[in-house]
Computed example of a mutant assay.
Amino acid sequence: MPPAPALDIRGLTVRYGDAVAVDDLSLTIPRGQTVALLGPNGAGKSTTVNAVLGLLNPTAGEVEVLGRKPQDAVRAGSVGAMLQHGGLPTEARVGEVIDLVRRSFDRAGQTTAWPLEDLVATAGIDGLLGRPVDALSGGQRQRVLLALALVGAPPLLLLDEPTSAMDVEGRRAFWTTMRGLAARGHTVVFATHHLDEADAVADRVVVVAGGRVVADGTTAEVKAGVGGRTISFTAGPERRLDDVPAVTAVTRQGSTVTLATADADTTLRALLADGGLPDLEVRGATLEDAVISLIAARRQTSIGAPR
């Protein structure tokens, strides 16, 4: 019999009074995948993560984590989490906090704690064990929170905006770590607003809007689902672009003009007939383009839905 998926969500609904945070959301994630949860603020990503961690009781639906109820999987040490507003105890040193959490894995039913030397190297906190928690930078705090999430070598790792306080170098090092964990067989599920991270790292992208899944696939599949192309070139303010055929949007940044078009060939023929196109660039939809389009379509559907 095949092992249970890392995450199996069926018909999850979460309400806060009259507000619906998650609306009949279903999602299955096999073991070993790296999955990005994308969507605007208020889309339901963090609420879904909290339901997976057993931190709230859903209004309806079921959640299974590695074939168990969320609370049972967490108690067994099978889930590690970095939450968006995770905190660290003050007036303590990093090594003391790590040691405290590692000791908790000696209880009956818990997995064995990750060997300290490997944990320190994997999380990138070498040199920080003797440092006071209050003296950590934002990026260092995130690294320490990652180490705490990894203490039990959990099969499933949930990350909510994990690189929000990191600089470019820190983000790059962080995702190198995530690739290494995925190669070891860990399942990594992360919510982020950095779409470049999702494009570069995720095996699969799940776009959530209005509490529902509106797209699910590889980044290439999600981008391919959005029609149209973007044409960029250099032009002065005197060049008229009001009546160019098939254009759906026009933006100017200094001398750079960017046109969104539903038919690139038609648009290019009209532009070339009207003059040259210095610094021409034609590209398909980016992941950002696709996510924005999907969110806008979901909002239009919600506005038009009967109340």
Score class of each variant (00 low, 15 high):
89 P>I: 03
255 S>G: 05
104 S>E: 12
189 V>M: 10
172 R>Y: 04
147 A>R: 07
207 V>C: 04
260 A>Q: 11
3 P>V: 05
261 T>S: 15
180 G>S: 02
302 S>E: 15
77 G>K: 08
110 Q>G: 11
103 R>T: 02
93 R>P: 00
129 L>V: 02
193 H>I: 02
71 Q>C: 01
57 N>H: 11
247 V>P: 04
226 V>D: 00
8 D>I: 07
279 D>N: 13
23 D>E: 12
226 V>E: 00
77 G>A: 05
156 L>Q: 04
38 L>H: 08
285 A>K: 12
273 A>F: 02
110 Q>I: 00
76 A>Q: 12
187 T>V: 11
178 M>N: 05
183 A>E: 13
268 L>N: 06
261 T>R: 09
174 F>T: 08
299 R>T: 06
133 V>R: 02
134 D>I: 00
207 V>G: 03
211 G>Y: 02
277 L>T: 10
228 G>Q: 05
214 V>S: 02
177 T>F: 05
48 T>V: 13
21 A>N: 10
146 L>P: 10
34 T>N: 02
141 R>P: 05
120 V>N: 05
20 V>H: 01
167 D>G: 12
219 T>V: 14
190 F>A: 07
256 T>R: 15
52 V>C: 14
245 P>L: 02
147 A>Q: 04
188 V>W: 09
198 A>G: 11
194 H>G: 00
126 D>F: 13
206 V>N: 11
115 P>I: 10
149 A>H: 05
107 R>E: 09
169 E>Q: 15
220 A>M: 04
139 G>W: 10
284 G>L: 03
295 I>C: 08
107 R>P: 01
233 F>R: 10
13 T>M: 03
117 E>H: 08
111 T>Q: 15
179 R>T: 14
210 G>Y: 04
64 E>I: 01
307 R>C: 01
215 A>F: 00
243 D>E: 12
17 G>F: 12
81 A>I: 10
296 A>C: 03
36 A>L: 03
115 P>L: 06
283 R>D: 06
24 D>I: 07
188 V>G: 06
271 L>Q: 12
49 V>R: 03
107 R>H: 03
302 S>K: 12
17 G>E: 09
276 G>S: 14
94 V>P: 07
254 G>W: 02
